[in-house]
Design a protein around this nucleic acid. Structure first.
Lengths: 150, 150
DNA sequence: AGTCTAAGTTCCTTAAGGGAACCCCGACTG
DNA sequence: CAGTCGGGGTTCCCTTAAGGAACTTAGACT
């Protein structure tokens, strides 16, 4: 519902939430990434209301995160990740890392990730793009940037 | 909204959304991280409804992401990040990275992050915790984990 | 006693989510 | 070639959550 418009805020978190902050959106993205690319598949997998799924898909397409394309002569469509969308899936992987660590409980994580490069089951780690050392919330100072509000 | 209970799903994304998926929650967390630790400060900074802010703070405290503690003899409280919460801020930094890259526009990013270790303005990069190589959505295979639904 | 302030509550309005039923359209079936 | 099927949505109604303004509470200050 989110009647407040996050898109206008001078904050990249708020702007990102404007794209995927609505309920279900990250799960829709996860499904598309996992290979559930059609309306019926996503709806059945998530148990989401068809109405809401329509709204979310349209929103994600409008923001260039998904692309809607026909896969048949008949009016049939599938949704595929754009480059912009694929990079959002990286964000989901970080969510998975946190959820696995803090919420998985005794049963352990529901899904494992095997890294192509090394072949091992692993998880993401945040590093500084500049020096390669770990970069976490406590390892940085915040400075006003060029796009800061006046 | 979100009447659907994400917490029960066998998915770390859904479970994480149960904690911070409601509107405003990530921005509340950002504010606490940025030093706006009191009710009035957060309310004024975000322009959020007091009612909703109360609900969000209670929810985040209930989930162990924030801690509510008195800072005066009078009934005055401040909210501080727990370890669990601080690691969620890492997730926010990834959101910032995506938002800066895809949504900042000509004005540039509103906030810059200077890394303590190297002293440079930088951003986070996702690496494999095992081998240290880049680890993005396209670099992994998904496997069922021990906590997978039957 | 009266005022101030932080931190909430309460109450009302409006909009968004949930869910079931319905619709459209091209393809197959007898 | 009428009837059915299946994917991909719309429509409608009900309930619940967000927005927002006003009110409350409790201790400290004057």
């Amino acid at each position: 519902m989110q009647r407040t418009n996050f898109a206008e805020m001078a904050c990249s978190i708020a702007r990102t939430l404007d794209v995927i902050g609505e309920p279900w959106s990250p799960l829709v993205l996860r499904d598309v990434y996992a290979g559930f690319t059609r309306f019926e598949q996503i709806q059945a997998d998530l148990g989401i209301s068809r109405k809401v799924l329509t709204e979310r898909l349209n929103h994600l397409v409008a923001h260039g995160v998904l692309e809607r394309r026909p896969y048949d002569q008949r009016p049939r469509f599938e949704y595929v990740l754009t480059e912009k969308g694929a990079e959002l899936v990286d964000l989901l992987m970080v969510m998975v890392g946190w959820g696995d660590r803090w919420l998985a409980g005794a049963a352990g994580p529901p899904v494992l990730y095997r890294h192509h490069a090394c072949g091992e089951v692993s998880h993401v780690d945040l590093r500084c793009a500049h020096c390669g050392e770990p970069m976490h919330a406590r390892d940085v100072d915040l400075l006003p940037g060029p796009g800061a509000a006046r």
